[in-house]
């Protein structure tokens, strides 16, 4: 009897030891896979930074150096002093368009979301359904006519054309409406009884409660202007109004298509830095907003 017990015990130990080994091997494989993928994902960023610190001669080497022979910041000086890419102007243009369109867009989004979430009026549900349905249509379909419209309005090559056509995002209205609806209706009725105006109620109760969503919308909208490329290129691609991405793509490439890659990489790094800073400080809001939206920019 006791012999059997001992044998059973020994078998159990053997099995658990085996399991442990398997478990450790699986863990090692997991980490190996994840870290390899992580390195692949990060490599372009690494390559951008080290290439931006190399001289063209070093960049041309047959066997590339993984760390620059010496850190040469001249490319960055070139980027900021280049006549090819007037970076200061591009930054200011993009910042101006981003801030103004985000601010106006937020006002419109909050008012509309409030109307859809709290107010009762005829045709509300039908209107909302209609607006959601337009989200299925690819944006290019609108662009064709919008190009004519802004031309008729005489808005070509102005800041207005970069800001106004994209102020309303049905998706952001939808997102904020969902958030507003979570606030109990009793709160609104109580405020009404107390004689609080709608605007005051919005400002004092709704907006503070929905702040995370509003911050997410703000960041995504700002990132959108930072990354917008096609519309600005169509309607306002002159020196005075050009945005950062449009300036970047064509800079440092001469007519025959030969590119000064290290300087170009320095420019790319400069343009990418604000995005990374925003990401580092506001990661939580970005990831939350994106997981609910799936809209890039």
């Amino acid at each position: 009897m006791s012999d059997l017990n001992v044998m059973q015990n020994r078998d159990m130990k053997k099995v658990s030891a085996q399991q442990k080994v398997v478990k450790i091997i699986v863990k090692i494989m997991l980490y190996a896979f994840l870290i390899t993928m992580g390195i692949i994902v990060l490599f372009p960023f690494y390559w951008m930074i080290i290439s931006s610190l190399k001289t063209m001669d070093e960049y041309r080497l047959a066997i590339p150096t993984l760390i620059p022979q010496y850190f040469d910041f001249r490319n960055y000086v070139d980027v900021f002093t280049s006549k090819d890419l007037i970076l200061g102007r591009l930054f200011l243009n993009t910042l101006y368009v981003g801030v103004v369109s985000t601010a106006l867009s937020l006002v419109i989004t909050v008012l509309s979301a409030f109307a859809f979430a709290r107010l009762e009026f005829k045709g509300k549900d039908a209107l909302f359904a209609l607006l959601l349905a337009t989200m299925m249509i690819p944006g290019e379909l609108f662009t064709i006519t919008n190009y004519q419209t802004v031309n008729t309005f005489g808005w070509m090559k102005t800041y207005t054309v970069l800001i106004v056509p994209f102020l309303v995002s049905i998706f952001y209205i939808y997102l904020l409406k969902q958030n507003f609806m979570q606030v109990p209706n009793e709160l609104y009725l109580a405020a009404k009884v107390d004689g609080t105006s709608d605007i005051k109620y919005l400002w004092k109760v709704m907006i503070p409660l929905a702040l995370p969503t509003i911050i997410s919308i703000t960041i995504l909208k700002m990132m959108g202007s930072w990354n917008s490329y096609m519309w600005p290129r169509l309607v306002a691609n002159d020196d005075a109004h050009r945005l950062i991405t449009n300036g970047l793509r064509t800079a440092f490439t001469d007519a025959s298509g030969v590119t000064d890659i290290p300087v170009q990489m320095a420019a790319v790094a400069v343009v990418s830095t604000p995005l990374f800073l925003v990401f580092i400080f506001l990661r939580k809001y970005i990831m939350k907003g994106v997981s609910r939206s799936g809209i890039k920019g």
């Binding site: 990354n227 970047l248 793509r249 990489m265 343009v271 990418s272 925003v278 990401f279």
Partner: peptide, 10 residues
């Protein structure tokens, strides 16, 4: 969190 044109250039 990147600009798809910029990183495309990389």
């Amino acid at each position: 969190v990147t600009n798809s044109i910029a990183i495309g250039m990389v």
